[in-house]
Design a binder for these strands. Structure first.
Lengths: 214, 214
DNA sequence: GCATAAAATATTGTATACAAAATAAAGGAG
DNA sequence: CTCCTTTATTTTGTATACAATATTTTATGC
């Protein structure tokens, strides 16, 4: 009998996911040093899998390596943020398009349901709730594209954006309205509209960066 | 007196670059297993920095990790290749645009000179020469964008494409003609034309994949 | 012979050990 | 007290060691 073994992931992969999660949750903040000993103790592993995890995160732009000085949560300056959005502005609309084309009916329903379930929480007071919503929304859309490379890249970029975003400067209701429009277009299987709606949504984020940190 | 210390990179970074180079040069081919002991001996390092390098390469999609089985040079199936080009088709044109906008005069001259210096080598006979040219051309352009994230991503993707590309199926002169057109537009500082020329150039690559491996 | 099971070998993933470099602390000179 | 030098401590980067899993080889039954 053929046994379907679970592709058991190694420790470094678990650690990698944990740290990503911690960055998203702002338990680790941009600029912070990741002391190896401390992180190893915190996560209950040795430094070996930790180092592999750091290396992965480095190439995803979430962590920065300063040789012989240590690893740090990457802190974006204004130029970096613009560069990041330059990329997102091209790729997220592509993702929305492909989601409309390739997403399963089940996922499309889930997407709509997700937005129905987020009626009105106070963004100013509950920032992490919005963070979670935003992260999951973009993640779900990118998971519908059928392009795992795209999914991986944009998941990381989304985390960087969120973790570097200033608390004060988000127009929450407008953002969710944007999500709703995108979800609608994807659910209805309209690639052009989905792409354009996403483009506008990302553009707003870019505009906000431009006007603020100048 | 202020001393400008050279940011000395660690072994894992050197190993990482070495392996990337080896993939590009086809000394390591898609599907091949990277036995840790062998690679460590070959590169003259221990397995520790090697593992960090593998982890980096994994997140750049150049290497695949099969837990408890080892690391392998990533082998793209047709779907993967289409996914890859779906991304390149959006990002490389953006890169060409930014290169036209932000590239230094020196780099622009270098770009034109590069294409003058590649008059007519026989692609069929000298595949690796074309590989090198293609890699360096795209690398130079992406280095002119002023967007290091974009540069890093597309450098890797370029390597994957080249290492997975079939020997037989490249129209070399047509490709170089495309490069010439792009270089021209960038050198003249015409973003729209540069973007469009690059789009067409990548599109040709995509078409080739579509028609062939079907 | 051929397929299956058992033993032997090789390879991986992780922890630990150690040297080199960076940081922090202590000590003096002005 | 402040600045510089020297010493001590911490932290990093790499190598090695070891247990657990995969793979290969050998043995055994049919």
């Amino acid at each position: 009998m053929r046994t379907y073994k679970v592709e058991t992931e190694d420790l470094s992969e678990k650690v990698y996911k944990n740290i990503k999660e911690m960055i998203l949750r702002r338990e680790l903040v941009p600029g912070q040093k990741l002391t190896q000993e401390d992180m190893a103790k915190l996560l209950g592993v040795s430094r070996t899998p930790l180092l592999a995890a750091f290396s992965k995160l480095e190439k995803e732009w979430l962590v920065e390596s300063r040789p012989r000085r240590g690893f740090y949560i990457r802190e974006l300056n204004k130029e970096d943020e613009l560069n990041l959005f330059d990329i997102r502005l091209r790729l997220e609309p592509l993702g929305a398009r492909r989601a409309a084309e390739n997403g399963s009916e089940q996922d499309k329903k889930r997407l709509v349901r997700m937005l129905d379930a987020v009626p009105d929480f106070n963004c100013m007071e509950n920032r992490s709730a919005f963070n979670d919503h935003d992260y999951h929304f973009h993640g779900l859309v990118m998971g519908m594209t059928g392009n795992r490379m795209l999914e991986m890249m944009l998941t990381s970029y989304n985390i960087i954006s969120l973790s570097n975003q200033d608390e004060i400067h988000i127009d929450c209701s407008k953002s969710i309205e944007g999500h709703r429009k995108i979800a609608q277009a994807i659910a209805e299987g309209k690639p052009d509209e989905a792409e354009e709606a996403m483009r506008q949504h990302i553009q707003i984020g870019l505009d906000r960066i431009r006007e603020q940190r100048s």
